[in-house]
Deep mutational scan, measured.
Amino acid sequence: FKEKSRGVLREWYAHNPYPSPREKRELAEATGLTTTQVSNWFKNRRQRDR
């Protein structure tokens, strides 16, 4: 994950830790990652924050 991608994901996570499938697609396009990578990032981040 590039620093820029992580920044976008972290910013989004601060507002909404549970993005919808459509939001995940938009995030994937914005970061250049796949929707699966975006989903996993959020899942792992939520797990880490428990």
Rank of each mutant, 00 (worst) to 15 (best):
A28H: 13
R46P: 03
T36P: 09
A30M: 09
W41D: 07
W41C: 02
T36A: 07
G32C: 07
N40G: 09
N44W: 02
H15N: 15
L9H: 00
S5I: 15
S5D: 07
E29V: 04
K2I: 12
Y13F: 07
R48I: 09
A14P: 02
P17V: 09
T31M: 05
V8I: 15
R22N: 14
T36I: 08
R10I: 13
V38P: 02
R10F: 03
R50T: 12
K4E: 13
V8F: 10
L27E: 03
T35V: 11
Y18K: 09
N44R: 14
S39C: 09
E3R: 03
R10T: 12
R48L: 10
S5T: 15
G7E: 15
P21H: 02
T35G: 10
T31I: 07
W12C: 01
F1W: 03
P17I: 15
K43W: 03
R48G: 12
Q37I: 07
R25P: 04
R50Y: 10
T36C: 12
L33C: 05
R10G: 11
R45A: 11
T36N: 11
K24T: 10
N16Q: 07
Y13R: 01
A30C: 11
L27H: 03
F42K: 02
G7I: 15
A30I: 11
K4R: 08
R10H: 10
Q37E: 08
R45N: 07
R10E: 15
L33R: 08
E3K: 13
K24P: 01
R25H: 14
N40F: 02
D49M: 04
R45G: 04
H15W: 14
G7T: 13
S20E: 11
R22S: 15
F1T: 09
R46E: 07
V8H: 07
K2M: 13
T31G: 05
Y18H: 08
G7M: 13
G7C: 13
S20M: 11
R10P: 06
H15V: 14
E29C: 01
V38A: 01
W41R: 04
H15P: 01
L33T: 06
R25Y: 14
R45P: 04
H15K: 12
R22T: 15
P19T: 01
Y18N: 12
E26G: 08
E26N: 01
E11L: 02
T36D: 15
N16F: 03
R48Y: 13
R6G: 10
W41K: 02
S20L: 09
K4V: 07
T36Y: 09
K43C: 08
A30P: 01
Q37H: 10
T31C: 10
R46T: 07
E3H: 07
N44Q: 03
G7A: 11
K43T: 10
T35D: 09
N40W: 09
E29M: 06
K24A: 12
S20Q: 08
T35M: 07
E11S: 06
N40L: 05
F42E: 04
P21T: 12
E11K: 03
K24S: 13
F42V: 01
T34E: 09
T36L: 06
V8E: 09
R46F: 03
K24Q: 15
T35F: 15
H15S: 14
R46K: 06
N16T: 12
V38N: 00
N16A: 09
R50M: 10
S5G: 09
T31Y: 00
G7W: 10
R25D: 13
T31A: 11
T35Y: 15
